[in-house]
C-alpha cells in the first residue's frame, strides 16, 4: 500500500489514487503524419522499466488533479511527484548541472 505525495494534498494513502500509466507519452499533435507503426508505438508500446518509472496518477478520491510520480518499480520507492508540465526531479537536476 503506497503512500503517494499529491503535489497539492501531500502524502495520502494509495486507495485515494488511480494509476494512469506511463507519463510523458504525449499524444502526437498531428496524428496523420505518423504511419501505422509509429501510431501503434504511441498507443501500445510502453517502456515498462525495471527501476525508475515516470508515471501518471490522479488523486481520484481527493483533489482530482492528475500529476506525475517518479517511482522505482522494484522497491516501490517514490522519489517525488511533480505537476503536469513540470520536468521530473532527476531531469530537472541534470538540466541545472549542464546549465
Amino acid at each position: 500500500m503506497l503512500l503517494i505525495p499529491c503535489p497539492w494534498c501531500g502524502l495520502r494513502d494509495e486507495v485515494e489514487f488511480k494509476y494512469g500509466g506511463e507519463a510523458h507519452n504525449n499524444r502526437p499533435l498531428v496524428p496523420d503524419v505518423h504511419d501505422d507503426t509509429a501510431w501503434a508505438a504511441y498507443l501500445f508500446m510502453k517502456k515498462n522499466p525495471k527501476g525508475l518509472h515516470l508515471e501518471r496518477w490522479v488523486h481520484a478520491a481527493g483533489c482530482r488533479r492528475w500529476f506525475n510520480v517518479a517511482r522505482d518499480t522494484v522497491s516501490n520507492r517514490i522519489d517525488g511527484s511533480y505537476k503536469i508540465g513540470e520536468k521530473p526531479p532527476a531531469i530537472a537536476a541534470e538540466t541545472e548541472e549542464s546549465a
Binding site: G20, R27, V58, I84
Partner: peptide, 13 residues
C-alpha cells in the same frame, strides 16, 4: 469524467 479530466489536465491544459 476522470478520463475527460485526464485529457484536459495533461494534454490540453
Amino acid at each position: 469524467l476522470s478520463w475527460l479530466e485526464e485529457w484536459l489536465q495533461t494534454e490540453w491544459p
